[in-house]
Structures are given as C-alpha cells and as structure tokens.
Design a protein around this nucleic acid. Structure first.
Lengths: 361, 361
DNA sequence: TTGTAAGCGTTATCAT
DNA sequence: ATGATAACGCTTACAA
C-alpha cells in the first residue's frame, strides 16, 4: 500500500513539474480504486475472477477517470492484436464492397478490428501491404484469389499468420479458400446458352492479368464450348477494362463482325450493362437478335427495360464467412473449410434462343 | 558484450528447452550483427546516424533472420501507431467506396494504415466504433457528417485525437470538415430548374435520419423554392430507402398525383436511376413530360438512353484530402482547412423546360 | 480472491 | 557513432 501511494505521489509531482497531464492508465485506475494493477486487468478481462465489491470500485474508478485501455500495450503483452487485415483489389466493385462491409460487421461482433488496403490488382503492392499488416501485428489475413507474391507463403509460414483466400473455390489446389467456383459458374452459364441452341458466342471480359477469378470464368466458358466442339472466334473475343463505356465499345465491336454472335457473355456487371445499353443504341433486339448474360447481380440489372440474365454470388456470405473462419481459428474453434458460397444463375429476359435460322450451322 | 552473449546463450537454451522457436526480434538482429539494440533501431529509423559499415552488417542480419519489426511494440514506445481510423456509414454507396479507396492509397503513401468500420448510419454504433479505434491507438479519425454522439467531442478532446468530418462543408459551424456544400449544391440545382420555368417540384429522397448531408440537400431545395414563393406539396415529397426499386416506386407515386410535377429531384443516384427507369415503364417522355435530376454521377447515368442530369462530387478528392490533412497535422505541417471539394452540376438530357402549358401557373 | 513483479519488443535518454 | 538501460501500459505467472 505504501508503495502504491508513493508511486502516485511521485507521478503527481512529475505532472506538476512537466505541466503535462499524463494520460490516465490502468495504474491510475488501480491507485484510485485502491487495488493492484493485476486486479484491474482481471476486472476487465476476466471479471468472474474478481469479487463483486472490487469490481464495483474499479468500474467506478474507470468511469470517473474516463480510462480507455491501451490496445497497443495489450497487444504487446498478449501477442494478439484482435485485428484482421484484408487486402482487396478495389472497393469500387460492388462484390468487394459488399464483402468488406459484411466482413467488418462480423469482425466487430467478435471483437476484432479490420485493417483494409486495396492492391489495385497489383501482386507486388499486395505483398507490400500484407507485410505492413504483419508488422502491425494482424492476427489473420483475408486475401482475394490464389495468385500472390512468390515470397508470400514463406512469410506467412514464418510468422504463422492464418490466411484465407476469398472469391475462389478450388479445394484441390489450396486449403483455405472461400467463394464461388468461378469456372463452374461460367461453365454452367455457357451450357445453358448452348442448350438453347446458341453456336456463335462472343466474350466481353476484363483483363485476366492478376485475376485468377476472371481467368477461371473464361476457362469455364471455353470448357463448356469445347464439349460441343466449338470455340470463341478471335474476332469475338474482346478484353478490356471494367466499365460500362468499355462494355458498349466491346459489344459494338463484336457485334459488327461476321458471323454475328448470337450470345454475348460478359465478365462483369459493368460490361454487361454496357453491352445491353449499346444494344439499345444499335437498335438490336435483346434477346431476339442477341442474348446477353453477365456476372454479379447488381440492382440495375433487374430494372433495365430488358432485365439481364446474370450470375448471383453471395458476396456478403464470402466476407462474413471469411471473418468467421479466421476468428474461429484464432479462438480455437474448428470451422469447416473450404467453403463454397451460394451462387445462382438468375435467368431474366436478356437471354433466349438464338435468332431463327442461326440456331444451327 | 559479454552480457549480450550471455543473454543470447540463455535464450537459445530456453528455445531448446521449450522447443518453441522464439520469433526473431530486434534483439536477435542486434546480437547477430554484434551491435546494440539501440543501433539496430537507429539503423532502421534514422539510418543517417549509423555508420555505413554497421548499417550494412545490420541489414544483412535483418535479411538473414527475416526480421519483421513489431509495430505494436513500436507503437507502445513511440505513442504513435501510424494508423488512421475511418468510420463510414456504408461502403456500398459509390461515393464512400471511392473516398475510402483514395484515402487508403494516400495513407499508404504516407506510411499510415487504415482501420475501417461501417456505422450503418447509426450514431450509437459509430460512437462504439470510434471508441474501439481510440483503444487501438489510432493517430487520427475520419468521420462522415457533423452529427455525432454527444459524448464524442469530450472523448476526442481528452485523448487529443485529430478528427476530420467529411462530405460536409460548413466552416461557420465547425472547424475541420471537407466536402461539398450540400445545401448550396441543391440550391443551385433547384435554381437551374426554376430558371427553366419549372413550378411544380417533386422530391424523391432517402431518409434524413442521422444524415445531415441529405438533410442539407433537402434544405437547399426548399431554400431555392422559397425564394420563388414555392414549396414542395406534401404529395410530392417522397422519402424512402436507397435503392433503384425504391426510386421507381416513389417516382410512380409522385407522378400519379395532381398536379403532376414537372421536375423530380432525386437525393441519390439509385433513386434517380430508378425514377428514370420507371418513367420508361410508365411511358413518360424525359425531359418533355418531366425532368429528372439526381445526385452523384455514377457511370450508368451518362449511358442510359436519356442521360441523367446530376451533381458530380469529387469523392476521391474528399478521401485523399482527409488523409492528407490528418497526416499533415500529425507530421506538423499545416494544411489548409476547411476544404471545399470540387463539385459540378452536370447537365445532360434528362432535364429541360417544363411541358408547354404548365410552365406558368 | 488479491498482490508482486517480470516480461512483451521497441524507442529514446543518457553516457561514453 | 555507439552502447547501456529505463521507459511505454498492459498481462500473467507465481505468491500469498
């Protein structure tokens, strides 16, 4: 007791001397409540180990002093930061934004905080951001896709940071992933179009550079077509940016070639909307002249004059379960993984049989 | 020197005993490079204070051991976390997503990391999230709007956390804000419609609950109208959610009242797109039968069959400058504040003079 | 149930 | 230019 009082007196003197109001810390709370620092720590971390009497006194002191515990000190002492880092390619695409929101919410409910960075589809940048996150002491990592920096695996292993790859599902190649089976999704979509009689397909998609999801989707299309002995002709294969204007541009391009495609498969929602809007501008009838299908069900798709057939991916589910998995692992629960998220091909008005006379070749 | 070697030996023994490979720390690097911990610290933080010779040796050791500095320890020692917290209402609205992306990028360039949370337009939740961030030791805070928890100011003052309110500009009431002048924006937009002869206005907007930006925009409309002695009739005032389907719904409602509005002002891009799409469904001609204007220039607006007049806000600028301001303050530079971001009324095809015979009353 | 005191991995103040 | 060492604010054996 004497020691504690002396310490406090000393501190007060120092404050007076420096004129600098030392921020209240756990120590101040302890002195005020007349207990040891250990007891205060217990009172907030394991309350059941502290007598109600003291707990009361301590809480009073905390309120009075307005103490906010120092997370960095706690992290240093416990070697746990209760922090999860996520590196996404961008936030301006609806699926990632939705996943991030859901993830953050789930993390928060479990007492974790989200660190966020955007790699802009750049592996090198992603690696730097991950390194930074590890420096910051994140307890886990959420990434997108499976193509990362060659050094990454080593780094993660050395620091033993649990990681989950999102928006992919390929259990045969990797362990912890969660998302749709991109290849299968587009395989099925293509199959659906084939079954309606389409033979001449065009693909309007974004660059697959550093984007294994987009690549897998392309593969799905090709695989389905290959089963029928068809292939996308070079002039029907249009790769560009992620934007509506690009969608218009590329759609226009593929639709002014010979033979004219009867089905246009778009790799993302902006391209699909762009394609449809261009069809309007070109005076084409959808789906009578041409079928258009997309990826990711953004709201506008179902409200256009001709609603768009597309693939719906439960991005919220991806984000939420990524968080759940990581936190679960950290807390010692065992969570099922890999996890394939719900997907659905939403058939709307923009897809139908090919124009008569072109359904066979 | 003897001391150092002893310590290392001791540690090695412990490792062998526990079988637990202690993670390499600055101390290991020091021993390996045969220098003191202080020198290692200097070598990475203030390299110019260390002789090239030692610097070299130290870097070698770092590489060999694959040392990653511990940010939490550093934060504890320096009382700076190089971390900024941002609490946004949501990420699924384009403007916030864009701002977040730009902010994160700017922070990263300055060596800071972003903590992110979404309050879902809930003041209480926002407050809890901010508290959490302060516990985590953020050096600064980015918030949206000016309406926060009553306790917030006190908390921020006590912990002395620099904060900036974004997406608002009202220097007369508060200090650090950055964004558009929401009231003026809609004042001007309304003025523009008035000048074309419109007299019967409808408003389709989202709820203003916990959203001072939306409220200010509404105020702008009313102020402009008041100057002409007009007011929005109750049946022309439609408040709802943020979605395209809601926009359709509300547009339909206001357009089936008497007198029929000649101009519909929408409070956000989804509502505007919904309104336009519903006008198509209703067989209304835009802008001949009715003018539609919106807020925030999302890409689809310029590509619809009738392109939409709207307000463009440089959200990236908001995010980027919020980061700049905070970091600047922390680094002792002085940054101009408040900052009004660039805005522009983008006049497209969806707005024009009112139908003949209705331009005067 | 409560207290004592030794860390946690850095930085920063002194000396040298 | 470099080294010894005391913080930083908390947690957690170990004691009592």
């Amino acid at each position: 007791m004497a020691t504690r009082k002396d310490k406090q007196a000393e501190e007060t003197e120092v404050q007076a001397a420096t004129g600098k109001a030392a921020l209240v810390g756990l120590r101040q709370v302890a002195t005020t409540a007349n207990v040891s620092t250990a007891t205060v720590s217990r009172a907030i971390n394991t309350p059941h180990l502290v007598s109600p009497k003291l707990r009361e006194r301590i809480n009073e002191a905390i309120d009075r002093l307005g103490w906010v515990p120092d997370g960095t000190a706690r992290a240093l002492a416990t070697k746990r930061s209760s922090t999860i880092g996520a590196v996404f390619p961008t936030l301006t695409h609806g699926d990632f934004a939705r996943a991030t929101t859901a993830m953050q919410q789930e993390l928060q409910e479990r007492g974790y905080t989200l660190l966020l960075a955007c790699s802009d589809y750049d592996v090198e940048q992603e690696f730097q951001q991950i390194k930074k996150f590890i420096e910051r002491g994140v307890d886990g990592l959420v990434l997108v896709g499976e193509n990362h920096h060659p050094e990454l695996a080593k780094l993660l292993a050395r620091r033993n940071v649990p990681t989950i790859n999102t928006f992919v599902y390929s259990p045969e190649t990797h362990g912890s992933c969660i998302g749709p089976d991109n290849r299968k999704l587009f395989f099925d979509m293509t199959k659906y179009l084939i079954d309606m009689g389409h033979q001449v397909f065009a693909v309007v998609a974004q660059s697959v550079e550093n984007n294994d999801r987009a690549e897998a989707r392309l593969q799905g299309i090709q695989d389905a077509l290959a089963e029928e002995g068809i292939a996308v002709r070079p002039q029907h294969f249009a790769i560009g940016q992620w934007s509506i204007s690009e969608g218009r541009h590329l759609f226009h391009r593929v639709m002014t070639t010979q033979p004219r495609p009867t089905a246009v498969i778009c790799g993302n929602p902006s391209l699909a909307v762009g394609a449809y809007l261009e069809s309007l501008a070109m005076g084409l009838k959808v789906p009578d002249d041409v079928s258009i299908v997309g990826y990711d069900d953004i709201e506008v798709m179902s409200h256009l004059p001709v609603s768009l057939t597309t693939v719906r991916v439960q991005s919220e589910q991806v984000g939420r379960n990524a968080a759940r998995y990581l936190v679960g692992r950290l807390e010692g629960e065992d969570v099922e993984i890999p996890f394939q998220c719900d997907t659905e091909i939403v058939i709307r008005e923009s897809s139908g049989p090919p124009p008569a006379g072109q359904s066979t070749d």
